[in-house]
Design a protein around this nucleic acid. Structure first.
Length: 828
RNA sequence: GUGGAUGUGCCGGAGUGGUCAAACGGGAGGGACUCAAGAUCCCUUAGCUUAUGCUUACCUAGGUUCGAAUCCUAGCAUCCACACCA
């Protein structure tokens, strides 16, 4: 019999309940978003996933749980919520699978997406699946191509030569991530070479100022904003014209005040004109140097020690006509400024290091004033302030002042000018691979690069290509050969595809009208739902994706397609999930718990609750099997309680506490303090089970505040209470100012008496006699206290004031200490 | 190096200047129920000790205050991001 009893007790079957409600939600289109609603809209979005073959991982589950809780909460608050999901389906892994396992990327992606969809559905997220987008669908990337054409028309898309990583074995370009220790990921022995290809760029720099200026208006995490600012990196300085072999080139500097201290000039090895400067004598050294540099990834380059080589040429400093040697240096960034720097070793750390290494001259031009800087004994660069010396007519001027004066002087002489520079580069969008959006361009011998006409879009990816050698698109001759759209002559298609960040830069707009076949989206629909009100995703996208989408939105706005400036008003980054034991989770180690398996074992609601109750969602946390067991236990107890609870009048204090919980949990969710909310839920549950009977309203309120976290079990219990409608569509309980105030007033008096007598006791212990006690209350509380009670409780003469009283007796300004719950106190 | 964040008991973490030996969860120990296990429930979990008691406690050192985990100053440590941007 004991076994039977146990069975009855453990009667909750999470899996069955989950399936039941997921099916009902879907059948009743509970989470479909419709424009006609009179309610205020709310756009709740999580970053869409790349559908990889390995399926959903716990990080996804965390990301989407955080977003789903928010969306469900907003829905209950009465907003018309749009909460879509889709797939960022184009990308390298699918192509790698084709190369390594012979699976066509299309098939790989289809299977992965199907798998993702069923997994996401089984986790009970409240998505409107009817709006799903798939970026590998020609009906989607058609609009990527359309935007490309618009960029081209606006002069924002252009071609220029740019360096790429090249593997001579694969005969293909490698992404930075495919470069491992300077060699190809598939051919360890094949060193990566640098090749220059003509590639397409988007002029992100055109919007640099706006991208920078609008950051402050965003309700985004501070560090993300900081990162974007740094990424855009606006700096003020001057361009100065140097001359060599009769050719002028301008150098950007933030330190024009040190122009007289230039002792050499350094070019980036990737500078376009580098070879022009290399003399015959230095050719050998130059070649040796270039061989050592074998990745375009500046990350790699930055790990190298400072290295350089003399070109054999000299440049002339325009202010004093000094001849200085031209070097190449691996620390100079090719895309920043003009790809070259004037080196002032005495006053710049990097230049100093370089000069020491190659025995170059060091010339001091700023006198630190409080100590002497000797050129022969200098051990590190002096980057501080001071007075100019060795600087011709500018000697004796403070270097800060000299900055402006020298720029003025340069402009007058027409050898330089004021300038601002951005670290932000134009966005190179060409990728020499298959599984991306084809660039809608045809090359014609007569007409050059000709855009494919809009009505011929989409340019679809051909299915028949060969993977593994070179760019797969080059292997389909039939697809490549087309007539030139302009002259009708023989042309060839562009075989580069676009960076996949292109696809993700505007997907959130397409969600608003994802099935539109006629246009990119309906303007009205987008302006109804957008911009995104709440965006949840990983911090790793702080720069790339989140800048590119801001850029796209500004561009589409200027095209007149949308009427707002920023893609997402509020942003939240979830924390990183670590495997049990603290290591990073990785597929290779196999130490990541699988969300689907976990749900089967403990239930979806248990997982959801656990994911947000360990720590605050923006902090990293460690997976714990025990922890989820704890969450699961709580849900079982809740279920158990609801099955057996007697409905009837409960204590007044439970009503009061429930009311408080409604308020604070609502605030907690709004601020992503999910953990605190779950703590309150536990507390209120503990109070509830102490009651003999509980009112129906209290039970329902409890289910409602639990619903965003645990939607399945709450639907089930909601129905068991006799409700016909979905709890997911019910409204968040109203917070009311309940009575209880009476007793609170008592509390305040008692509390003050208690505290004050403690202090009095201390004073009197020290031998100080106290006769009078003065209290200074905040105005709100001033009326709530009772002077007689205080006198009685303390046995002293009591004076009470409001903080605002002008003629209060307050010798030590104790009234300033008053706050809610505790007055300022002064004794005599 | 630059920018940001953080330091609380065995662990994860709440925490408003007084109600803090510090919520909640996990872990550990003990007990109840059971033939037993699981589940569930109860208790304990800084030290002395068992008293409405004392001592030591919220990174360290100072300070403000009648009173500090909470405010200020300095230091130390940890984490994250960007890393040679001229």
């Amino acid at each position: 019999m004991g076994i039977v009893k146990a069975k009855v007790k453990a009667n909750i079957n999470f899996g069955k309940i989950e399936k039941k409600w997921q099916k009902r939600w879907e059948e009743n289109k509970v989470f479909h978003a419709k424009e006609e609603s009179k309610k205020k809209k709310f756009y709740s979005l999580e970053m869409f996933p790349y559908p990889s073959a390995s399926g959903l991982h716990m990080g996804h589950a965390l990301n989407y749980t955080i977003g789903d809780i928010f969306a469900r909460f907003k829905r209950m608050q009465g907003f018309n919520v749009i909460h879509p999901m889709g797939y960022d389906a184009l990308g390298l892994p699918a192509e790698n699978a084709a190369i390594k396992a012979g699976i066509h990327p299309e098939k790989y992606t289809k299977v992965s997406m199907k798998n993702f969809t069923s997994q996401l559905k089984s986790l009970g997220f409240s998505y409107d699946w009817s709006r799903a987008v798939n970026t590998s669908d020609p009906e989607y990337y058609k609009w990527d191509q359309w935007i490309f054409l618009k960029m081209l028309e606006s002069g924002l898309a252009y071609q220029k030569e740019s360096a790429v990583n090249w593997c001579s074995e694969c005969k293909t370009v490698l992404a930075n991530e495919q470069v491992v220790d300077g060699a190809c990921w598939r051919h360890e022995k094949t060193k990566v070479e640098i090749k220059y290809l003509k590639q397409w760029f988007f002029k992100t720099t055109e919007y640099a100022d706006e991208l920078l200026d609008k950051i402050d208006g965003l309700n985004w995490p501070e560090r993300t904003k900081q990162m974007q600012k740094h990424w855009i990196g606006k700096s003020y300085g001057a361009e100065i014209d140097f001359e060599t072999n009769g050719q002028k080139f301008s150098v950007f500097t933030t330190r024009p005040d040190t122009i007289y201290g230039v002792t050499f000039v350094v070019f980036s090895p990737y500078h376009r004109d580098v070879e022009k400067f290399v003399t015959k004598e230095q050719k050998k050294e130059f070649d040796k140097f270039m061989k050592r540099i074998n990745s375009v990834s500046e990350k790699d380059a930055s790990l190298l020690e400072k290295e350089g080589v003399f070109t054999g040429s000299y440049a002339i400093n325009p202010v004093n006509n000094e001849k200085v040697p031209i070097y190449l240096g691996n620390f100079v960034v090719s895309d920043y400024g003009s790809g070259m720097v004037m080196a002032v070793p005495a006053h710049d750390k990097r230049d100093f290091e370089f000069a020491k290494k190659y025995g170059l001259k060091i010339k001091v031009v700023i006198d630190p004033v409080d100590f002497e800087l000797n050129e022969n004994k200098i051990t590190e660069a002096y980057v501080g302030q001071g007075t100019l010396i060795n600087s011709g007519e500018f000697n004796g001027i403070s270097n800060e002042k000299a900055k402006d004066l020298i720029v003025e002087y340069l402009s007058k002489k027409k050898i330089g000018r004021k300038s601002t520079q951005f670290r932000l580069k134009d966005w190179g969008v060409s990728r020499q691979r298959y599984w991306g959006t084809p660039i809608p361009i045809v090359y014609c011998k007569k007409c050059g690069a000709v855009p494919v006409p809009e009505k011929e879009l989409p340019v679809k990816l051909p299915k028949k290509v060969i993977f593994g050698k070179g760019n797969p698109l080059l292997t389909n001759e039939k697809w490549i050969s087309v007539k030139c759209p302009r002259c009708g002559g023989n042309g060839k298609r562009e075989t580069d595809t676009m960076d996949t960040f292109v696809n993700s830069s505007w997907y959130f707009l397409r969600y608003c009208d994802s099935n539109n076949e006629k246009e990119i989206f309906d303007k009205k629909k987008v302006s109804h739902w957008s911009p995104v009100d709440m965006y949840v995703g990983g911090a790793e996208h702080a720069c790339m994706h989140l800048i590119y989408s801001r850029f796209y939105v500004k561009f589409l706005r200027d095209l007149g397609l949308i009427d707002f400036d920023e893609p997402a008003l509020r942003l939240f980054h979830q924390g990183m999930l670590h495997a049990e034991g603290g290591e990073k989770m990785s597929k290779s180690k196999g130490n990541g718990p699988d969300p689907i398996g976990t749900c089967k074992k403990y239930g979806v609601d248990s997982l959801r609750l656990f994911l947000v109750s360990v720590t605050s969602p923006d902090k990293d946390f460690e997976w714990s099997e025990n922890g989820i067991d704890g969450s699961s236990r709580l849900l079982k107890r809740i279920y158990e309680f609801f099955i057996h609870v007697k409905i009837g009048q409960n204590s007044e204090s439970l009503n009061f506490e429930m009311n408080k919980a409604i308020k604070s949990i609502g605030e907690n969710i709004e601020n992503f303090e999910y953990r605190k909310a779950t703590i309150k839920l536990r507390e209120i549950f503990e109070l509830m089970i102490k009651e003999e009977k509980v009112q129906r309203g209290v039970l329902e309120d409890f289910l409602k505040i639990l619903n965003p976290f645990c939607p399945h079990i709450t639907e089930e219990l909601w129905e068991k209470l006799g409700n016909k409608e979905f709890i997911s569509l019910s409204s968040w309980p109203q917070f009311q100012n309940l009575k209880m105030n009476e007793s609170k007033k008592e509390d305040l008096n008692l509390k003050i008496i208690d505290t004050a007598s403690k202090i009095i006791h201390k004073f009197e212990e020290k031998g100080q006699k106290i006769k009078k006690v003065y209290f200074y209350f905040v105005p709100l509380e001033f009326n709530k206290v009772n002077k007689e009670k205080l006198m009685e409780g303390l046995g002293k003469e009591v004076f009470i004031y409001s903080v605002q009283d002008k003629d209060k007796y307050d010798p030590e300004g104790k009234s300033k200490k008053a706050r809610l719950g505790m007055p300022g106190i002064w004794f005599e």
